[in-house]
Structure formats: C-alpha cells, structure tokens
Design a protein around this nucleic acid. Structure first.
Lengths: 139, 139
DNA sequence: GTCTATATTGTTATATTATTACATAATGTA
DNA sequence: TACATTATGTAATAATATAACAATATAGAC
C-alpha cells in the first residue's frame, strides 16, 4: 500500500499541484504543526475556501511523505528529515503539546532493527516520545 | 503529569466508578478497538445516552492505563499488557486497520533504552508498526 | 450523624474534524 | 480529436469531541 504509492522524496515541489504547493509552502514556513481548519483560515486569501480543498492536499502530501500527521493532535507538520521514508519519530510535550520531529538517523535504523528483532515486517513506523519540554519544566 | 496521576495498574476494577466499569467491561469483552460512538450505541441499554458520559469514562481509563487510545483511528482498546506502564506498542494493518497490542516486554525495554541513547527523558512512548496483516496478505 | 468539599453523573448545546456526493475543469495519451 | 484520468470547486452532512451548567453521590472532618 505505502510502497506502491511511495514516490521519491526528493522530487521537487514542481511535481505538486497548485493547492498542494500552497498548503505545503504554508507548512514549511510555519515550522510547527498546523491544523486543517487553521490552514484553511490562513489560505482564504489564496482562494481556498472549503475544508475539502485542504484535506485533499494534506492527504496527498502525507502520501508523498512531504508532511506528517501528528495523529494525537490532528495536526500536520512539514517533514524535516530527508531520510525518514515516511517513518516518523517525534517528541511531544505532555503539558504544552509542543512537537519536534526527531532527525537523528540512528534512531530510525534502531527502530527498524527492533522491528526485525520482533519478527515484524513493517512498511513504516510512527514513534512518539512524551516528554516535559524545557519551557514547561521551568514553569 | 503522567507520573502524578499514575495509579497502580493492578488496582482492581472496584476502584472504577459505575460508568467507568461499564465502559471498561465492554472494551475487555470486545478484545478489539472500539470507537466512542459505537461504545455509546452498545451502552444505550445500560442507560448511557450522551457522548460525554462515554468520553469521560474513556479519558479516565486512559489516564489509569487500563485502556489505550489508537490515535490514528480514534479508537480505544483494553490494555493487554500488565507491564506497559502506559507505554504503548501496536501493529496496525495498512489495509484493514486491524490493531494488535504488542506484549513482548523486551520491546518496551528496548524502546526505553533507545530514548536514553538519544538523551530523551521520557514519561512514556507510543510506537506504531504499520504492516500488512496475514489476512490481508493472502487476499 | 451532619456538614462540607470533592468527585461523579446527567443533559443540552455546540465546537471541531473529516467525508460524501456531485459538478466542472484541466491534463495526459492513444 | 476523443477518451480516460486527475485535479478542482461547492454544498451538504457525518463523525468526533468538548463546554457549560445542574443535579447527585461520596468521602472525610468535626
């Protein structure tokens, strides 16, 4: 399923359609997870006016591996890691919900190895580490 | 946050309130993930008639570690692993969405070790392995 | 026991997130 | 061109989750 639709992550943004480009650019500039309806709000000026326009672009971008969905927040973040292959690893703050994508490539290899060790033939994984972020620990 | 509210997983179900017990029993007997509104449907006969009654029970049960939420499906499953400490590890089928909780304790230790290796002080983790399940591979 | 604080439950309304259904336009390809 | 495929637009609605407030039950302090 994932495999058959997986496309070279390095494919330039020219491959994206108009709406996909608009949504992707917004997410890249944001640098933090955004929610579908907040994206919709931001993009009213670009002429996007219905949720479906946003969701369609988001779905495709997820499929292409150019963005990830943070399921527990119903939010979307531009991919930060050129080697992730649609695998995802995040830290999520227990208190403020702040999300950071983990870029450490060893981690991706290690999790893959763990899957193998447990005899699982995986197409991808999602790993979420819940932490108290620095800002929240102080307060 | 998790720590302060974490309660002994072995606490018997007597500790649960009426609605919590009703919801938890249903999930235990189901043995598969259920969605909030499907739980509501099933429990109309028990006198539960509003979403909030279900969500309140589910929230508490998650907090107690007696059930887990499968975020990508908005579904809830009874915990299957007495050592999980609110850590979660699942396989999820790409095609049919079938979810299984992984019980292999070594995996939980290994993921904890990975967090440490990456200098993360985590309160818990959630790991999702996406696979093609046996049933789906055949068809 | 009774008073009080706290937790739990009940109920209505509403907010948030996501999809269905259908029409139209653009693009690629024989 | 003609045809299939993909992308877009729009309206309606489904599915998921929470806010706000009232009523009831429970556990300790006295």
């Amino acid at each position: 399923m994932v495999d058959s639709k997986m496309i070279n992550k390095k494919s330039i943004n020219e491959d994206l359609t108009k709406n996909q480009k608009i949504v992707f650019n917004l997410l890249q500039n944001a640098g933090e997870p955004l929610k579908a309806y907040s994206i919709l709000e931001s993009l009213k000026r670009e002429g996007l006016k219905s949720p479906l326009q946003i969701y369609r672009a988001l779905d495709k971008l997820v499929e292409l591996g150019k963005i990830h969905k943070i399921e527990s927040q119903n939010s979307f973040i531009a991919c930060n890691n050129s080697h992730c292959s649609s695998n995802t690893a995040f830290t999520i703050c227990n208190r403020c919900g702040d999300v950071k994508e983990i870029k450490h490539n060893n981690l991706f290899e290690d999790v893959g190895a763990l899957a193998k060790k447990n005899r699982l033939k995986i197409s991808r994984f999602n790993l979420e580490f819940y932490i108290d972020c620095n800002g929240c620990k102080i307060n």
